[in-house]
Amino acid sequence: MHVFEKMYDEHEKVKVRFVGFTTKDVRYDFGIVYTSMFFGKPLVICMQTGRSALLDPKDIEDHDYLQRIFRIDTKEQAEDLAEFFSDILPTTPYVEQYE
C-alpha cells in the first residue's frame, strides 16, 4: 500500500460565475471559480472542452498561452478572449501562498 502525504484539504465557500458569449466567429461558455486558493487566481473552465486554467492579469496578456490552453484556432480569437477576461477577472496581483 502506498502512503500519501496530504498537502491540503480545504473547504471554502466560493463565488462561481457562469458566462456564455459570442464573438463574430465563436461561441464560448465558461465557468469561473473565484477562490482564495491557488495564489488567488480564478479557476477558469471552458464548459465546451473541459479545459481549465488558473488565470491572472499577466496570463491574460499572453495570447499564445490562451490559444494553447483553451485550444483556440486563431490569434484574433485569443485576442477577443483576452479582452473578455480583462473585463471580468480581478486585476489585483496574486498572493504568495507558500511562504
Rank of each mutant, 00 (worst) to 15 (best):
V19T: 07
L89K: 12
F21Y: 13
K41P: 10
G50A: 06
I60H: 05
D59P: 03
Y34W: 09
R17H: 05
K41V: 10
D87M: 08
E61V: 02
H63Y: 03
C46P: 03
E5H: 09
F84H: 10
I72N: 10
G31E: 15
K41H: 11
A78H: 04
D25Y: 12
Y34G: 09
D80H: 03
E5L: 09
I45K: 03
Y28T: 00
K6E: 14
F4C: 00
E96F: 11
F85I: 01
K6L: 15
E96W: 06
H2I: 07
K58I: 14
D64R: 07
T49A: 02
T49C: 02
Y8E: 11
P93G: 15
S52G: 08
Q77K: 09
E5D: 11
M7A: 11
Q67C: 03
I45N: 01
H2Q: 08
P93H: 13
F4E: 06
A53V: 05
Y94E: 12
E83V: 00
T23N: 03
R68E: 15
D59R: 09
K15Y: 07
V26T: 09
P93K: 15
K75M: 13
Q48L: 13
Y34F: 15
R27F: 09
A53P: 01
S86H: 12
F84N: 00
